[in-house]
Every structure is written in structure tokens, then in C-alpha cells.
Design a protein around this nucleic acid. Structure first.
Lengths: 149, 149
DNA sequence: TTAATAAATTAAAATGATTGTTATTTAAAA
DNA sequence: TTTTAAATAACAATCATTTTAATTTATTAA
């Protein structure tokens, strides 16, 4: 945890940004909720618990900055809010998501799975892929079990 | 064109909705701009050209209805607006998108390409896939040509 | 160390997309 | 035709996000 913070700090410094207390508090919340897909408001409320003086706009600015530096990815599941997801260290590509249309749960797929598809797209459409977003909508294993009862 | 309108009309009727003049005007705009990825506001402005009395809220409600009936798909490319995309008739799955990070162009991929990936996901993650969203971000062929100049 | 400068933050206001409300209109059913 | 329900227009309200202006914090140069 501390080492990841250190690395993020260096990442910021290398682009001549500082890891201010507010930014550090925000990063810590993201690290502590790596499994979740928090909205800016979610992050704000969690940061506020430890640093009550922080403002929502600062959280937005921090998330924007982290997105720019590709430390987090901004993603949108179709409800009205953007969600922010820490990128795995060293991951070349953004991971995928499984959104359950029954319970709303969001699970992650860390495996790439798209190598072949991307090769086809680059070739057939002559498109230089820099990033991707892949989300499946369906029924998660938990709700399938529930349905059987 | 007329036959597609007819089919959409029947689709609405089968769920006991009517194809009102406002709804028809909206559907026509979508049909006439099938290649584009219009926001609600875009649709509104285009509908207004032919039917100036229409209200923005009606366009929103119509798009929402069409989305519910899976006649259009609502998609979000990360700018602040939802975009609406007619589903190909008879298409089981939503098509994919190529978003150019230089010029902003959005191209479509109608081919599925995901069959293998979906088989893996259904099996390995025990997830019943109902739909998907796949978007690639990168440099389109037009901008690649431009860069070479 | 101190004055000057730049970066970051707060708090509040502004913006822009989307949704809700109410009165009215239109269409369908009795 | 009368009644009822669905759909709409016009406007107000809401919600996420961004901007602004004043203030604070950190950094640099004297």
C-alpha cells in the first residue's frame, strides 16, 4: 500500500504535480476500495470521513488528474455518473467489466481476452488501438443461483 | 425506410405504445442519420426542423422508450452526453465502435467479433451475457494518413 | 529569512444534461 | 357524444460536473 502510494507520488512528480494531502487522501480511498467502482460523490464522502475539510471540486479535479496520468480509468455504466477505477500497476490495457442487470453488481475481468480481436480490428479497419472499453451486461453467478431456488 | 418505420410501429403496438407524430418524426431523424451518433439535443434540433412544435422532453422520453424496446441503443463515449444509435434490424448484439482520439470521429463495426470471447466469459466467469459494449479508442485511418504528410 | 510567485484549494455560483410537473391536447373506448 | 387514458408542451426542478474568485500553501529568488 505504502509502496503504491510512493510510486503514484513519483508518477505525479514526474509530470510536475505534487501529492498534496487532499490528493493523497483521495488516492488512499481508491486503494482501499479497489474492488468497487466509486463515483466522484462516493469518493468524496469516503475522503470526507478522514479529511472533512476537503471540497467536492477538489475530488473531481484530483480524479481528473489521475485519469489524465492513467493512474485511474474513468468509466461509465449508463447510470448518470462516471466511475473511477484504479488501473492495475503495469497493466497495458484497461480491464473489462461484468455488470449484472439483476443486482447491479460490477465484477472485473483482469485478463486481456481481446488480443485476437484487436489484431483483427487494427488490420481490417486500419485503426491504431490505444485503449478499449469492454463491458458485458447479463446475469452474474450469484443471481443465477438465486433464480434456481 | 417506410417498411422500417412500419416495423417499428408494429413493435411499439406490440407493447401497446403508439407511433405518435412526434415519435415518428424522431424515428425518421434517427433513420436519416443512421451513421451518426446523435445526442438527445442533436436529435431535438433535427426534429425541430420539420416539426418545430416538439419539446426537448418529448424527444428524451421517446429515446428512452426506444431504448427500452431495444430499437435504439444508448451509448456514452465519455463526453458528458448520451448518444443514441439505431440497432441493426435483427441484430442479436450491439455493434462496436471506434473512437478516434485525434479527430473525434466515431466509426462502427457491425461484425460481432466477440463470439469466442463471450464463450470464454460465460464459461469461466459463469456469467449469462445479454448484451455488451465494446469501444476502441485510438487513431482512425484518416488521421493516420494525415500524420504521414 | 522574507518578499514574490505559482500551484492548489475552498466555497459558492454557474452550467448543462436530464427528469419531473402541471395543464392541455389528442386519441380511444364506452 | 361523453368519458377515460395516453401523450405532449412548456416550464421548473434536479443532479452531476465545472468554473470562478478569494484564500491558502508551497516554492523560488532576493
Amino acid at each position: 500500500m505504502e509502496t503504491r502510494i510512493e510510486r503514484i507520488k513519483k508518477h505525479l512528480h514526474s509530470s510536475s504535480y505534487k501529492l498534496t494531502p487532499q490528493r493523497e487522501a483521495t488516492v488512499r480511498v481508491l486503494l482501499e476500495h479497489e474492488e468497487d467502482h466509486l463515483s466522484a460523490e462516493d469518493v468524496y464522502l469516503l475522503v470526507k470521513e478522514k479529511s472533512p475539510e476537503i471540497g467536492l471540486a477538489t475530488v473531481y479535479r484530483t480524479l481528473e488528474l489521475l485519469t489524465e496520468l492513467k493512474i485511474v480509468d474513468k468509466i461509465n455504466f449508463g447510470d448518470g455518473v462516471s466511475r473511477y477505477d484504479l488501473r492495475q500497476e503495469g497493466a497495458a490495457h484497461f480491464h473489462h467489466h461484468l455488470v449484472c442487470i439483476e443486482c447491479g453488481a460490477v465484477d472485473e475481468i483482469q485478463e486481456d481476452l481481446l488480443e485476437d480481436v484487436e489484431a483483427v480490428v487494427e488490420q481490417r479497419w486500419n485503426f491504431k488501438i490505444k485503449d478499449h472499453r469492454l463491458t458485458f451486461h447479463g446475469i452474474c453467478y450469484r443471481c443465477q443461483d438465486k433464480d434456481e431456488e
